[in-house]
Amino acid sequence: MARDVQITFSCADPAGLAAFWADALGYRVQGPPEGFQSWDQALEAFGVPPERRNDASAVVDPEGAGPRVFFQRVPEHEQVRNRVHLDLRAAPGLTGEARMAALEAEAGRLVSLGATRVRRHEPAAPLEAGHIVLTDPEGNEFCLD
């Protein structure tokens, strides 16, 4: 039986990281529960104090096909390299210079949103097509592939 998958990030600023990943993935921040016009209105009604209203956030695929990405606030900062990371397929079907140009363009867009460029891996035929490693605004590594 197939299962729905949710990807979860532990972070310091769930709303900020959700906004970054919504733009990066072409997703949207998940809307408030039915009957509420905003999350602030819903959390107020649920009795959540203002200082706890950024404890969680989520982004969803507007088409409903991709997994939900959930962001939860944790007190500690991650100090080790993440063992699981996302690969954003920014140049499917492209090869050589066209592929790397597409990856560079997307890297520039993501850096303007708050990502940090880490390194570029050049194509090395026949198996390595080339990719770019970045980190999101909280330092989680991901690749443009």
Rank of each mutant, 00 (worst) to 15 (best):
A42E: 07
A18W: 05
R99M: 06
E138N: 10
G96D: 11
H131Q: 13
A129K: 15
E106A: 14
R53W: 02
S38P: 03
A125P: 14
R120D: 10
N54K: 12
A19Q: 13
M1P: 01
P123V: 03
V84E: 02
V69C: 03
A91V: 04
V5H: 07
R119A: 14
P123Q: 08
E104H: 14
P126A: 15
H77P: 00
A107I: 00
N82A: 13
R28T: 14
W21F: 08
T135P: 02
V59F: 05
G93W: 10
V80K: 15
S112I: 05
G64E: 07
A101P: 01
R52I: 02
V69K: 05
T135F: 07
V59R: 01
A101E: 13
V69Y: 04
G31Q: 07
A18N: 01
C143L: 12
P75H: 15
R73S: 06
G47D: 03
R28L: 11
G108P: 04
P137F: 10
V118Y: 09
D55V: 06
G108E: 13
V48R: 01
A56P: 00
V84Y: 11
P32K: 11
R89G: 00
G114C: 09
T8D: 02
L94H: 12
R28Y: 02
I132V: 12
W39Y: 09
R109F: 05
L88Q: 04
N140P: 00
E106C: 09
E141D: 07
Q72H: 15
L103G: 05
Q6S: 15
R3K: 14
R120S: 09
D23M: 06
M1I: 09
S38T: 15
V118P: 02
C11I: 00
L144P: 03
D87A: 15
V29W: 08
L86Y: 02
A91K: 05
A24L: 04
E104K: 11
S10G: 14
E97L: 10
L144V: 04
F46E: 07
V133Y: 11
G16Y: 07
F70I: 14
H131C: 10
L127S: 06
M100D: 05
L88Y: 04
E122R: 12
T116D: 05
G35I: 04
